[in-house]
């Protein structure tokens, strides 16, 4: 390809588009299903129950410490399948690109996507590309959809949590949210806090032996830990109590949140899982999790209790409610 920027012609179905698909997409995603360039991917799926998910990614900035929109788009969809108890099998990707977008940036993003998919053992089997005029797409939007097969013996739902269940958090929180805010608003924090974006499938796979004791799993993305706890409380009809002293979080992340007036419990994460498990097996599940590099700092942070409220046991030993935030967390001076 001789061009260095995307033009409307790259989306028009002609030779420029064919070159783009060949060199940039197939070049990175390279597999025989995608390579067939059929209108739909033909998949041989086992007769098990299928899980299917979709998500669109509009994050700004496109590149941030720890990753980029591409890595996020692949990991996000793989994680949604994984926390449903499914083994991800295949992903589709759809690009909406603004005219004038640098092809070198597109190559980087596509490269990230290929690497993330490979790490999870998943192929990107079908895709679509559209190019829109300047100012019509703010750079790049990506949609990914994913299909997977549900593991036998694993039956999870936000409705299945019972009073007494233990709540396990797989690692240190708030990193993705702070990384994005710092990059986007150019707040100038040093050293850069990196997004934790990662695929959690292998982490969950390592606990398959405990399937029947795992009642729910969620990834605390937008809205952070507080959102997940509130969703579970509402769906399962339980209360949830977590202990401030037990929440894993890096000291620098707490400092960054203090500096900006943010609550780390509500910041987004892209490489974490919250498990709701039978209390009798919590310690064993925790040990198993900690063997994985993504969960060395995993901890039991609380449990499901009577009532319907989500609350925190503070360091002072008193309680405070953790309701849902109404909007995105923003830096405050007050």
């Amino acid at each position: 390809m001789r061009q260095d920027r995307i033009s409307l012609s790259h989306g028009s179905g002609g030779s420029l588009m064919a070159d783009l698909i060949d060199e940039v997409f197939i070049g990175s995603f390279g597999n025989k299903i995608l390579g067939a360039l059929d209108d739909a991917a033909r998949l041989n799926l086992p007769k098990n129950k299928i899980a299917f998910t979709t998500d669109s990614y509009t994050v700004k900035p496109l590149f941030f410490p720890g990753g980029d929109i591409g890595k996020l788009a692949v990991c996000g969809t793989l994680n949604d399948l994984s926390v449903m108890g499914a083994k991800p099998l295949a992903i589709s990707v759809s690009f909406i690109i603004e005219e004038g977008f640098l092809i070198s940036d597109l190559r980087k993003i596509v490269g990230s996507m290929a690497a993330a998919a490979k790490e999870c053992g998943v192929w990107i089997v079908t895709g679509d590309t559209k190019v829109v005029g300047r100012k019509e797409a703010d750079g790049l939007f990506i949609n990914t959809s994913g299909v997977g097969t549900l593991h036998d013996g694993m039956s999870v739902s936000c409705r299945f949590v019972k009073e007494g269940d233990a709540v396990i958090l797989s690692g240190e929180i708030a990193e993705h949210g702070v990384a994005i805010l710092d990059s986007r608003e150019k707040l100038g924090l040093e050293p850069k806090i990196k997004s934790d974006v990662a695929c959690v499938y292998h982490l969950i796979k390592s606990c398959l032996g405990f399937s029947k004791y795992i009642h729910a799993m969620r990834d605390p993305t937008r809205g952070g830990l507080v959102s997940v706890l509130n969703e579970i409380a509402r769906a399962s009809g339980v209360g949830i109590k977590i202990c401030e002293n037990d929440i894993p979080v890096k000291k620098e992340v707490v400092s960054a949140c203090d500096l900006l007036g943010l609550d780390y419990l509500s910041m987004a994460n892209e490489g974490k899982v919250v498990f709701f498990v039978d209390s009798g097996k919590a310690k064993s599940i925790l040990s198993r999790l900690r063997k994985n590099k993504l969960a060395k700092k995993a901890r039991i942070i609380g449990r499901a209790v009577k009532g319907r409220q989500v609350f925190l046991e503070t360091r002072l030993g008193t309680k405070r409610l953790l309701p849902l935030l109404e909007g995105e967390a923003l830096p405050r001076i007050c």
Binding site: L187, G188, L189, E190, P191, I193, K250, K251, E252, V254, S255, A256, D258, L259, G261, R332, I333, C334
Partner: peptide
């Protein structure tokens, strides 16, 4: 109206700026 955070001065920069360390995270002030 009072959100202020303690920081340790790491480096004096020009034009009345400094680099401060806030519990592991540094910022120009």
């Amino acid at each position: 109206m009072c959100l202020a955070v303690p920081g340790k001065i790491e480096k004096i920069l020009e034009d009345n700026y400094a680099l401060a360390d806030f519990g592991g995270v540094k910022k120009k002030i």
